[in-house]
Design a protein around this nucleic acid. Structure first.
Lengths: 222, 222
DNA sequence: TAGATTGTTAATCGATTAACAATC
DNA sequence: TAGATTGTTAATCGATTAACAATC
């Protein structure tokens, strides 16, 4: 059961599979199939089977996939059988929203602390999580074996904070700063403005298409 | 200058080009080249030229690309010469963070109002933006010709709210709810938990690799 | 002119889809 | 057994990369 060289495209489909199969489990569905999953997730049945078979095949000919088994296998593959400790750097809008977010349990993530550079915030809490000064970030990560660091601070200090976290042994970085940061550990970016711009691009294209249609219609009338 | 059938992969690189070229402009750099951009953005020079040439080629042999021209062309291509009006549905953690966010100007987006179902929030403001009751969402979109609707509410009502917005003529949806919503207009998803799970997958894989290395080392010692 | 770099065609690579034997 | 659906190999499609003539 060698699980190597999985393409980025496949990795990014895994959470969607897990989310969907979890829903099926909640509905008490017992079995599913590549065809059903493909229809529900707007994929191709072959693709679904190819994806699963990267990890060793946990279906049965003539039956399909058992929902409970599939769900557990997906969770195992994604490393979600153990818990991960996380710290948030930046107690601004995004940092605060993340600290208040109640959904991290689903990904087996525990928010341990928040760090900020403003002295007036130090000592306070958000959602019962303590706020420390960013000067203590490295020590805290080392002492508490923190796995994940969230960059939700200002862009000017993003790379600096990254370096501190890497030095202290962080294992992955979740980056909300609109900047490409450099690190020897996995980095996941949430680039909200880029997402927004993609949306605007598509809206704009629709507008152009409509304008063109309207023009053609006008020409017909001539 | 027909701009059609641009692949999703290219569309998703456009905001990064724009972000980088904007930075070059701020640094007062006058020219750049496909080779330089490729090195800076970790892409391939051919790819950069292919991407730009989908939109008609705005470089010059022997010279490269003028930063100002390139920046303006990218902004034009992405539809960022006009402004877009946005409403946020849901005044919870994420909705509040978005209402407070000061960076939307960059994407030419104006936050006009926030909607929530809680009566006690109606009449208040967040960052000087009024909060209305979600019952008024459709009328508000129609009357104010709102372009973009943000789903930052509870998952149970996400599809329902989507239908109301579509009915009222919304042109695009920015979805923060961990759910695949269905709409006849462009939908951009920010699925934070899925991003987190991808990060955890990669951290977990690194762990497996390390464990394996350690094992091999032990075997060597035997 | 010589050097540089584009625009564009051709080659390669990888991901998706189709097909089908294996088998529950 | 017959029907269903997997696991897996082969075919197709599309995206990335290489190559090079055009030209500034």
């Amino acid at each position: 059961m060698k699980e190597r060289k999985i393409s980025e495209a496949i990795i990014r489909r895994l959470p969607r599979y897990l989310r969907h199969v979890t829903m099926l489990a909640l509905r008490n569905e017992e079995r599913t199939s590549s065809g059903a999953l493909a229809a529900q997730l707007d994929l191709n049945a072959s693709q679904v089977r190819q994806d699963f078979n990267c990890f060793g095949g946990f279906g049965q000919q003539g039956y399909g996939y058992n929902v409970k088994v599939l769900r557990h296998e997906l969770a195992r593959i994604m490393g979600m059988l153990s818990w991960y400790k996380m710290v948030i750097v930046g107690a601004g809008n995004i940092g605060t929203a993340l600290a208040n977010y109640e959904g991290f349990d689903l990904a087996r993530v525990e928010v341990c602390a928040i760090f900020d550079h403003k002295p007036e915030l130090v000592g306070k809490t958000i959602n019962n999580k303590p706020i420390f000064h960013v000067d203590q970030l490295g020590d805290y990560i080392r002492e508490n074996k923190i796995d994940i660091g969230v960059l939700a601070n200002r862009r000017t200090s993003a790379q600096e904070v990254t370096d501190i976290m890497v030095e202290a042994g962080i294992r992955g970085i979740w980056n909300f700063v609109p900047l490409d940061i450099v690190a020897p550990v996995p980095v996941e970016n949430i680039h909200m403005l880029e997402s927004m711009m993609v949306l605007i691009y598509k809206i704009h294209q629709n507008q152009l298409d409509e304008d063109e249609e309207a023009e053609e219609k006008e020409n017909e009338e001539d």
